[in-house]
Amino acid sequence: MKHTFNDEETSRIIEMAWEDRTPFEAIATQFGMIESDVIRFMRYHLKSGSFKLWRKRVSGRITKHAMRRPEGIERGYCSTQYKHRGK
């Protein structure tokens, strides 16, 4: 991973990585980062304790991998998870 991300992209990657229903494949599609890249990225950008909480949360979570998701879960976000992005 050699790409440098601006603050907005960095924030979006972190947000997507924390979201339960956003698979790593969605991050790869949008930002060209495979799962191991995301792990390194999160390790670098989060405080140690936050990184450990995130790893514990996503480890083994089937919704973080598109191929392992239960049938019927096709979107990358929860329908009730609307985030207002006022500018």
Rank of each mutant, 00 (worst) to 15 (best):
R57L: 05
K87Q: 14
R43S: 08
S48A: 15
P70V: 09
I34T: 05
E35V: 05
T29R: 14
H84V: 15
G60H: 08
R69L: 05
K47W: 06
I27R: 00
F24S: 02
E15C: 09
M33V: 01
R68H: 06
F41Q: 03
M1L: 06
A26W: 03
H3M: 10
T22Y: 03
E71W: 07
E25C: 05
T29G: 08
D7T: 10
G72N: 09
T22G: 03
R69W: 05
S59K: 13
D37Y: 02
D20M: 12
V38L: 02
S79M: 12
E35G: 04
L46M: 13
I73L: 15
M42T: 01
H65I: 06
Y44S: 07
T4N: 08
V38F: 00
Q81T: 10
T22A: 05
G32F: 04
M42Y: 04
W54K: 01
D20V: 10
E71T: 07
N6R: 09
T10I: 09
G86M: 11
Y77K: 15
A28I: 01
K56W: 12
K2M: 09
W54Q: 02
E25F: 03
I14P: 00
K2V: 07
A66H: 05
V58M: 06
E8Q: 15
F5Y: 13
I27C: 00
E8V: 12
K2G: 12
G60A: 09
R75E: 13
F31L: 02
E9K: 04
G60P: 04
E19S: 13
T63L: 14
F41R: 03
G32T: 04
D37M: 02
M33S: 00
F51A: 09
A26S: 11
F5P: 00
Q81H: 15
Q81R: 14
F5C: 03
G86R: 13
